[in-house]
Design a protein around this nucleic acid. Structure first.
Lengths: 194, 194
DNA sequence: GAGCAACCGGAACACCGTCCCGTTTGACGA
DNA sequence: TCGTCAAACGGGACGGTGTTCCGGTTGCTC
């Protein structure tokens, strides 16, 4: 999104890059304490910039969220093939990868809440996250299907959205165990006992 | 909540009852077209009353939603025992009842979106809906567990919330099939093939 | 028909996201 | 080193939404 200044065509101004960094830092901190829906003004205030600046760097809230969690999503995506290689069976790899994805969602207050919506301007967020992760999930699903462990008529996108939805509200109600329900959902993929 | 006037202690004034009716009617209509998150002013305007009036009758949005859907929730609750009696096995009854619950959620735009939140003032809504439906669900679960069809370590509250969550955003994305995922979740309750 | 309390409507307030405009400041060439 | 100018900035203005307050109105009762 930005370039350090070495190669590119039109390097950003130094203060602009500094502000972008400040905003990312402030957002990351506030996301932890107040959730991803924290008011724009708060992020701007904490970063020591004006409200307009945040829009200049991150036109929508989704852009900010993407930027903050980009590397974590990347790590999750890369974990897919690794798990497939290391786990005893593809199904186990799928289980573990989904578990990791759940971890990612649950530890970010309210991330799942916002991941769901298509209607808002969150399509960008949706697009980025899913574009990166759905293929990984699809690979795991295909492997597990081919090994005969699970049914083959469920698409990765569906599964991911289902998992995402199940994680909504997971962190503000101790009686609700998202991980448990996700495990149930994944178990539902297996061929039923008959 | 109100009394027609026959039995009770302190009958409401006629205009108040008229307004409450108007509000319910307006809300029901707008919920269908604009979802349950329709602005308060719109409901008030359509009912031909002031904004304060809506707060007088329904202090929170949850109260309004409860009032609008009260009889449908009731019908759903009553369907539980009926299905248990008519279905071939308790598990099938559970399947059908859950399906009915999903119908209820999906046909109301955005109802599930709001059903999830504990943080807001939606606890009342949560409380009412769940208080009424969880016991029914628990009964079905217990019956299916006793007949040996499903595992017995999943609580009704968990299942209901999971189903509710899976229904979020079901009506604004044709590629997302909540019913399908819920079926998967319910299938996950069965004992795994080994 | 009069009095009173319940009730009403709309304006006022608070909060949030978004956009605009006058000002500042970093980068670069002279 | 210094002047120039576009990029970037900040804070305030705007529109929309939920919530509350207050003066006026209206139904009920005696």
């Amino acid at each position: 999104m930005n370039d350090g200044g070495s190669g590119g065509g039109r390097p950003k101004r130094a203060d602009a890059r500094r502000n972008e960094e400040s905003l990312l830092e402030a957002a990351a901190a506030l996301f932890v304490t107040s959730g991803v829906a924290v008011p724009v003004r708060e992020v701007a205030a904490r970063a020591g910039v004006g409200t307009a600046t945040i829009y200049r760097h991150f036109p929508t809230r989704a852009d900010l969220i993407i930027a903050v969690y980009r590397h974590q999503v990347e790590a999750c995506a890369e974990a897919g093939p690794a798990l497939l290689a290391s786990a005893p069976t593809p199904y186990v790899a799928l289980e573990r990868w989904i578990d990791r994805f759940v971890d990612f969602l649950v530890t970010k207050h309210g991330l799942a809440d916002v991941l769901r919506s298509d209607n808002a301007g969150f399509e960008a967020l949706h697009a980025h996250f899913l574009d990166r992760l759905v293929p990984v999930c699809a690979q795991l699903l295909a492997a597990a299907a081919e090994s005969g462990e699970i049914r083959s008529d469920v698409e990765a996108l569906q599964l991911m959205r289902g998992v995402g939805n199940l994680c909504i509200g997971a962190d503000d109600d101790p009686r609700y165990d998202a991980r448990r329900l996700v495990a149930l959902l994944v178990a539902g993929l297996r061929h039923t006992a008959r």
